[in-house]
């Protein structure tokens, strides 16, 4: 897949998960695996440049807090501008998906 769409897809999925609740990095990876029935298995370290990038864009903010297990975690929260960004990414994804479906489904040649 085009690298741009891979990045778009990953950050969109991360924002979508954070929309439901604040999460820490490992929790995001696990949730992503579980909810996609193990289809999305990232190289785990690549999540962090994405999270830091989103933080620098103001789409997420981080907070260090102790988890129920007692360990100190860095939780990421989605911000209002992150929600806006998510909407934009979802729309962009839909456009991409429609175009792919049209080609695969042969709609363009009908």
């Amino acid at each position: 897949m085009d690298k741009r769409y891979t990045a778009l897809g990953t950050s969109m999925l991360v924002l979508k998960l954070l929309e439901k609740e604040p999460m820490y990095g490992y929790q995001i990876i696990k949730t992503l695996e579980q909810q996609s029935s193990q289809v999305f298995r990232l190289q785990e370290g690549t999540l962090y440049p994405i999270l830091h990038g989103l933080e620098q864009q103001g789409a997420v903010i981080s907070q260090t807090a102790s988890a129920p297990s007692g360990r100190i975690r860095k939780y990421y929260h989605i911000t209002p501008s992150g929600r806006k960004l998510l909407q934009e990414k979802l729309q962009e994804w839909e456009t991409y998906q429609t175009a792919v479906n049209q080609v695969i489904g042969g709609v363009l040649f009908e």
Binding site: E55, A67, Y75, H77
Partner: peptide, 16 residues
């Protein structure tokens, strides 16, 4: 300086 921003955000305080 991302670590400065959390002081000023409306989402906090928040507890897991």
């Amino acid at each position: 300086s991302g670590f400065f921003t959390h002081v000023f955000t409306e989402a906090l305080p928040w507890q897991p």
